[in-house]
Nucleic acid binder design. Structure first.
Lengths: 150, 150
DNA sequence: GATGGGGCTTGCCACCGTGGGAAGGTCAAG
DNA sequence: CTTGACCTTCCCACGGTGGCAAGCCCCATC
């Protein structure tokens, strides 16, 4: 099976299939004499696994771990569960941060007339506003790619 | 004032100050004869405005718009409000997506023993895309129509 | 006035995950 | 044999942020 078919069958774009291969997430695909990647049913299963975990927001690093556990018959389900739950925490934290922003903004918008006049508490807040909290760590959910070594 | 001082006073790193300048978010800073950027109190106000809006998750493009409205005495507060509320929607949507992932994962983790045994419904779901809830009858032979568009 | 250290400059690289596109090879149908 | 769809690799972009390097600049201290 060529990469295009594998893509359709797995829901992962050819681009990403190659990217996952390059990143060691999935194994090096077999090649035809002319260099076309060839995919088997087993490869498709892996690709679908990756897609599902990606859809749940796991990072590639975490997916690599999950794949390892998947293939490891001697795994402890506790390991999987721990990984999953720590991701749940991360997701919740991110969502909470987003909702906090949303709440703040909504509160501001509520007291804005929203008419043709220039006066606007939203802009006022951005301009003068609560700069009270001193140098808290910057926006956590947009945190920089923490350069974890490899 | 040099960029380092401006950074401390505004809570924006020197790196990001330059980046915002390059991206047209903030104006081109004045320079000393030797090329050092110089910042005024007015510049600081702009930087703090940018930081506050970034803390609320606005994109640079949106911040540019907000800055335009801020500086525009003839603005309509309705424009600000519209921008804010559309961002609120985006934030809520993102948060909802995150929480949906979290919910799915938590549901899976709940039915995982989390012990030393290999059996794990979490991994099983990633592998087969099977039904999470054990009480529900299995899907019939035909396609389960899971459709996650991609 | 020399020296040293910290600040500043620009520029490039990295991260993640994804898409776009160019330049070229391959394959199957017409 | 030509055409068009597919494949290959390689580079570029995005949003934001940090790191590092090479090279100036400024000031204080000796």
């Amino acid at each position: 099976m060529n990469i295009g078919e594998a893509s359709k069958a797995s829901g992962v774009s050819p681009k990403m299939i190659r990217y996952y291969e390059a990143g060691g997430l999935i194994g090096t695909a077999a090649r035809t004499a002319s260099g076309y990647r060839q995919y088997t049913e087993a490869d498709l299963r892996t690709l679908r696994f990756v897609r599902r975990t990606r859809d749940l927001g796991f990072s590639m690093e975490q997916i690599a771990q999950l794949l390892g556990l998947w293939r490891n018959e001697g795994r402890a389900s506790a390991d999987v569960k721990r990984l999953a739950l720590s991701h749940v925490e991360a997701l919740d934290a991110k969502a909470a941060a987003l909702l906090e922003m949303s709440r703040t903004l909504r509160r501001l918008a509520e007291v804005c007339q929203g008419d043709a006049a220039a006066a606007c508490p939203i802009i006022d807040e951005f301009a003068d506003g609560g700069d009270v909290r001193p140098s808290r760590p910057r926006a956590p959910d947009f945190a920089p790619a923490r350069h974890r070594g490899r």
